[in-house]
Amino acid sequence: MSETTEMPRRVMLVDDHPMWLEALGADLTEHGFEIVATAGTGEEALRRARAARPEVIVMDLQIPGPDGATCTELLLKEFPGLHVLVISASGERDDVLRAVKAGARGYLVKSASPEELLDGVRRTALGDAVFTPGLAGLVLGEFRRMVTRAEEHNDQGPVLTTREVEVLRLVAKGLAYREIAESLFVSHRTVQNHVQNVLRKLQLHNRVELALYAIERGIHHDD
């Protein structure tokens, strides 16, 4: 891959399971990544990320406080350029959604194969979105919720194009990007861009919603 020379390689792993850390760490090192830090709790993750300045974080959602979703929120606020890949064993939907809305680039389940995980980390490092069918279903549902909420406020909600909805539904139904590209007669890159745009809109609208919420609650200063 020609782009690999450009690819960020400094990775931090956050997980409270030493065995898991070791296994994933070994896999990633073998494929040219550098593990600059590991953390077993949210507190360690926050402290060590500030010290080691990783470019990519692989974040387990179920860690001792603060939880993975909260850490993702805090770290991305502090380091907006960070690429976060969220991993979870128990697939807790609300937490996954929260982390992704805060700016995580993607989500994988822990039982994904080593190849899938490696590929996920690689794509995250390159700034691509990593979507499982489960995450696509969550994001679709979330957009519909946000549109309904915006309509209640006589407001223009976040709008997905017909194409974006189409792509997202195909991802949710388990089609690979290659298959989606074939069935829609577009390039693989175009599919990737659609998914990326959806994620960007979700994150953007999340910030708008947070601001609206703050205004509704009468909090006017921005901190």
């Binding site: 065995m19 389940v109 822990k110 994904a112």
Partner: peptide
């Protein structure tokens, strides 16, 4: 029980993986 189950799930995931 969530904590316990999460631990079990993690070990199972590791076995599946390796």
């Amino acid at each position: 029980s969530r904590l316990v189950h999460d631990g079990v799930l993690q070990v199972l995931a590791l076995v599946e993986r390796d």
